[in-house]
């Protein structure tokens, strides 16, 4: 029974990590940018919910989706577009700067204390399922993630833009040569990552019931790890990596000796480093990612 309970915990946490990792993996696949500022898209979604608390649910959700997406498009236009030719490391530093900038603008506007938000508190109730008590939030998270992933798969397989994005992920220069418009594909990737980020923020706000200007940081670190494990540049890999990290985190939480439990994140990152020695390119590395000479 406990194993099953842990499994559900693992899958629902993995689902959230997968959504966050997808947002990062998607951007990396089209422009080799590890977007540290993805956490700020999540944070801004959370703060939109906070600002609009008390409004109809639909308004809150749509507004958060809109804010994160607009911010994602904005950071692409202002910061990352001019740096498109820079090396991945320079891009990472610049996303660091964007993240720091947005965090402190929010700090300036809202202060540094965490603030409570009642967002979907009814999801906190647990339902009885054959002897298991499962928080509704976990079930909703798993369901939403599955629907979103199915939608993304359909988008990538069926729509023309999706096809172009897959082509760009495979080999960006080649894709441009056959007529894929770089700006359009990259803007699309940022828009999707904005949407995914705000959905992650829904989970975080519903689960913790609070927002703070640093709320995106730990999620983005986990998402980093997940997308690297899955294979940078591979969209399916990012999702796979997210689920794996979720499962590993929950297993460590459940099975580490009690004294060692506070060090759970250290173990997660240690396993990550060991993983890098084993498969530095990740599980599903895209072939175009390796330098050719």
């Amino acid at each position: 029974m406990i194993v099953l309970q842990n499994l559900i915990d693992a899958v629902s946490l993995g689902a959230v990590y997968a959504l966050a990792a997808l947002g990062i993996g998607l951007i990396f696949s089209v422009m080799r940018l590890i977007n540290f500022a993805h956490g700020e898209l999540i944070m801004v979604g959370g703060f939109t919910l906070y600002t609009l608390a008390g409004q109809p649910l639909l308004v809150m959700i749509l507004a958060a989706l809109l804010t994160s997406t607009v911010l994602a498009l904005g950071m692409e236009r202002v910061a990352f577009r001019t740096l498109r030719k820079a090396s991945p490391a320079t891009l990472l530093i610049s996303s660091f700067a964007v993240s720091y900038l947005i965090q402190h603008i929010v700090l300036l506007a809202f202060g540094s204390r965490a603030m409570g938000v009642a967002f979907l508190p009814e999801l906190g109730t647990a339902i009885d399922l054959g002897g298991l008590r499962i928080p509704l939030l976990q079930l909703v998270t798993i369901a939403v993630t599955l629907v979103l992933m199915a939608g993304l798969v359909a988008f990538f397989r069926l729509s023309e833009t999706g096809l172009q994005m897959r082509a760009a992920a495979e080999d960006f220069t080649m894709a441009r040569l056959v007529g894929v418009k770089a700006n359009r594909v990259i803007a699309f990737a940022f828009a999707i990552s904005g949407v995914l980020a705000s959905i992650v923020s829904f989970y975080l706000v519903a689960q913790t019931g609070s927002v703070s200007y640093k709320m995106g940081v730990s999620m983005v670190l986990i998402a980093f790890v997940s997308s690297v494990i899955g294979g940078m540049g591979s969209i399916a890999g990012a999702a796979l990596g997210g689920f794996l990290v979720g499962i590993v985190s929950v297993s460590l939480q459940a099975y580490l000796p009690v004294d060692l439990r506070p060090y759970r994140d250290a173990f997660v990152f240690l396993l990550f480093v060991l993983f890098l020695f084993w498969r530095p390119d990740g599980l599903l590395a895209s072939r175009a990612d390796r330098d050719r000479v």
């Binding site: 670190l221 990152f269 240690l270 890098l276 330098d291």
Partner: peptide
């Protein structure tokens, strides 16, 4: 020694992990 055998973006990512591991250990 093992870190410097990593290539590409894996080396910066590993140093990132080093920072986080050190932080978690030091604060616990």
């Amino acid at each position: 020694w093992p870190f410097c055998r990593l290539r590409g973006i894996a080396l910066p990512m590993a140093t990132f992990a080093l920072l986080i591991i050190t932080y978690v250990v030091a604060s616990n």
